[in-house]
């Protein structure tokens, strides 16, 4: 064991030394003229996205419009991760009776104060999450953050009043359905663009469906895509917690 650790240490120190040596070639921190900052791509995004999309938040504009293909497959990765967790630990629909009761599964006394506060707080969290999704064009936020917050609100229910209560509101089937629906919304938006004769995820043509001008179509379809992302992220975050906190049995929980 010891020689392995020593070898690991030497390898890591050698790698780190090389990387530290390489930092002398990197541009200074905060240099506005470094290749990454003064390149054509970043300048184009900063200066022209206003006329292309009318979205003040440049991150949202680049995320959902210019790099929409990238974001779509990130969403697919999250979806596949959720399915992977379910197939590693989950047990599908069949629920077998347990041989012996697990300690964490006993009817632990739930605390009334925390349950009451969470009843008050969960609607506020969910409304704020919807605000974050819808207001992603003008402030930090968007589908990923709002989706995580929506998922976290269900996790909060599961933490305070038990996993069965949360599964009543968002069952496993419903969560998988919503996750798939999110990916479908995203990919469907892209396919609709193809059906209307443009490239995949070229939103400009969607003004035939959504009305208004091409710029408005880009502005609006960004919101549609973000909603799709939010569905997937919300459902998968809850599935991850539900599976991991109950060893895949979807009962008991913490």
């Amino acid at each position: 064991m010891k020689p392995m650790k020593l070898a690991a240490l030497l390898t890591v120190i050698a790698t780190g030394g090389l990387l530290l040596y390489a930092t002398s070639d990197l541009p200074d921190w905060g240099d506005p003229l470094s290749p990454a900052n003064a390149g054509d791509l970043s300048t184009h995004y900063i200066q022209d996205s206003r006329d292309d999309t009318e979205v003040p938040n440049l991150v949202t504009a680049v995320l959902a419009d210019y790099r929409g293909y990238d974001t779509m497959f990130e969403t697919v990765v999250i979806f596949v991760a959720g399915l992977g967790i379910l197939s590693i630990l989950g047990q599908g629909k069949r629920v077998e009776p347990l041989a012996e009761p697990v300690a964490s599964e006993g009817n632990r006394e739930r605390d009334m104060i925390t349950i009451t506060t969470c009843r008050l707080v969960v609607p506020i969290i969910q409304i704020f999450a919807l605000y974050v999704i819808a207001h992603g064009h003008y402030s930090p936020g968007g589908g990923f953050q709002g989706g995580v917050m929506l998922g976290a609100s269900f996790i909060l229910i599961a933490l305070t009043s038990g996993l069965p209560d949360a599964l009543k509101r968002m069952s496993q089937e419903r969560a998988i359905f919503l996750a798939g629906l999110g990916v479908l919304i995203y990919a469907g938006t892209g396919l609709l663009c193809m059906a209307l004769g443009r490239n995949f995820l070229d939103y400009e043509i969607l003004h035939k469906v959504l009305g208004g001008t091409g710029v408005k179509a880009r502005y609006d379809s960004m919101l549609i895509v973000e909603i799709g992302v939010a569905f997937t992220v919300m459902a998968i975050m809850f599935i991850i917690y539900a599976v991991l906190s109950s060893k895949g049995r979807m009962r008991g929980g913490l």
Partner: peptide, 9 residues
């Protein structure tokens, strides 16, 4: 709302 509750928990 939340901070006293978390302390209590």
């Amino acid at each position: 709302l939340t901070s006293p509750t978390s302390t209590h928990a």
